[in-house]
Measured scan of single mutants.
Amino acid sequence: MIVFVRFNSSHGFPVEVDSDTSIFQLKEVVAKRQGVPADQLRVIFAGKELRNDWTVQNCDLDQQSIVHIVQRPWRKGQEMNATGGDDPRNAAGGCEREPQSLTRVDLSSSVLPGDSVGLAVILHTDSRKDSPPAGSPAGRSIYNSFYVYCKGPCQRVQPGKLRVQCSTCRQATLTLTQGPSCWDDVLIPNRMSGECQSPHCPGTSAEFFFKCGAHPTSDKETSVALHLIATNSRNITCITCTDVRSPVLVFQCNSRHVICLDCFHLYCVTRLNDRQFVHDPQLGYSLPCVAGCPNSLIKELHHFRILGEEQYNRYQQYGAEECVLQMGGVLCPRPGCGAGLLPEPDQRKVTCEGGNGLGCGFAFCRECKEAYHEGECSAVFEASGTTTQAYRVDERAAEQARWEAASKETIKKTTKPCPRCHVPVEKNGGCMHMKCPQPQCRLEWCWNCGCEWNRVCMGDHWFDV
């Protein structure tokens, strides 16, 4: 396979590697080409510095992935760790964990309700045991953590790749202090920090972006993250068709209702045909949960890209028209025109101005929308079919299609509260000796007794199943 190397943020060049090629071997190839010592090179990928003893497969490097290699003399205490030698983080029983690669970060837990604080980093599902597709590297999971809308060759929703760059020099040479644990960490600028490894760059702020994971991409090709779309790892039924499908869209209502993408497309087109989208002054033209839940309008309007190009163009047109109407304007009634106009409040005669090729020149009556006339309008008909009709959803289907309910059931079956801080902690095999993952707590306690870890627990039921 081919990976592209950008040395000291210059133009990239291809390097041929195998899945079992080590990072140090990659350094040696680059060092020979650039005429520099291999031990002064640092390989940066997806916000993480890659260790010498890791392989291309370990690092989730795919065909035509772009890695950054910078030349920086080692500072005291760094060289041993980078070589894969006596790194205290690798000691058996050590409590410190390697910062998780962005290629394996899962933010789907952050669609849980606000009262489930902490689960994004504490609760991990076991539903990723799908067998890898044919042709994928051994052991590589097909679980997708992110979804994007690819405006490039795909023109559809695709699995996405999370990447990070330095907000100062805009190069992907920043190593994160810690990985993101929720969508806010990724979507809110300057929320996460790190250290830029580019020479002479003092940058410390992280800037995240997404790429389409279905095809090789260049540095400049980015895609918009659709953070309401998630892999259906909890096997929730769709609120409309009641099938279990994946991926799904999880509405931001209190129940976190789930809808499959085909039904979401149908829901949007139906509402669009009836012009029953909601115009929100802050958000724009949007839709609420299909069950009509309060405070559930979709905030990231790129989710409506699921409509496809033709329907999305209609959505944008109707949204612009609705904006004009909300501002007190009118639409030209001549067939084939429909231009938005903003006449004076007491102006009865409205002319669709033909300047700049935008208007048709038609003069019409503001009251009856017919060709302009003197005197009273002959008839004014009330528009028919403008009443909002509820999208029919079966109550039982709505009850079963809740992301929140599956989460709470998982928590109930696989977790116990920490005796000190009461945060839910998952036990997935292993011994009875637990350690609270909350940095402010870190209590060592017994899963069996529910009390602080002691010699009695150690001698009596340390390794009970």
Rank of each mutant, 00 (worst) to 15 (best):
Ser218Arg: 08
Ile142Gln: 14
Cys332Phe: 02
Cys360Arg: 03
Pro202Leu: 10
Gly160Phe: 01
Tyr318His: 02
Cys289Thr: 02
Gly93Trp: 11
Asn356Gln: 08
Ile306Ala: 09
Pro439Trp: 05
Arg104Gln: 14
Cys332Trp: 02
Cys150Val: 02
Gly203Tyr: 02
Ser19Cys: 09
Thr168Ser: 10
Tyr372Trp: 07
Arg72Glu: 13
Pro88Ser: 10
His124Ile: 04
Cys293Ser: 00
Pro88Phe: 05
Gln438Tyr: 04
Phe24Leu: 13
Pro137Tyr: 10
Asn454Ser: 15
Glu367Gln: 11
Arg234Glu: 06
Cys293Thr: 01
Gly450Trp: 02
Lys48Met: 04
Pro132Met: 11
Ser205Asp: 09
Ile229Ala: 03
Trp74Ala: 14
Glu353Val: 09
Thr415Met: 11
Asp106Gly: 12
Asn90Ala: 08
Leu307His: 02
Thr83Asp: 12
Ile236Asp: 02
Ala31Asn: 01
Val250Cys: 04
Leu123Glu: 15
Asn313Thr: 10
Gln34Pro: 00
Thr240Asn: 14
Gln276Val: 07
Leu301Gln: 08
Gly328Gln: 05
Pro424Lys: 09
Val290Trp: 04
Thr410Leu: 07
Pro73Trp: 04
Arg163Ala: 15
Ser101Gly: 11
Thr242Phe: 14
Met192Lys: 05
Arg97Tyr: 11
Ser136Val: 12
Asn428Thr: 14
Gly139Lys: 11
Leu187Gly: 03
Gly329Trp: 03
Gly152Ala: 13
Gly47Gln: 03
Ala339Tyr: 15
Cys365Asp: 03
Ile236Trp: 02
Asp219Leu: 07
Phe4Asp: 05
Leu358Thr: 14
Ala320Val: 10
Gln40Arg: 06
Ser131Pro: 11
Ser19Trp: 06
Phe304Met: 05
Asp346Asn: 11
Lys220Thr: 14
Thr388Ser: 14
Tyr285Asn: 03
Ser108Gln: 12
Gln326Met: 10
Thr410Glu: 13
Gln34Met: 07
Thr388Met: 14
Cys449Ser: 02
Gly179Ile: 03
Gly450Val: 02
Leu107Arg: 14
Ile411Thr: 11
Asp130Arg: 09
Gly213Ala: 14
Ala379Trp: 09
Pro288Ser: 10
Lys412Cys: 11
Phe13Pro: 00
Thr217Leu: 08
Met432Ser: 06
Val456Cys: 15
Ala82Arg: 12
Arg128Met: 13
His265Lys: 04
Thr168Pro: 02
Leu331Gly: 03
Trp462Cys: 15
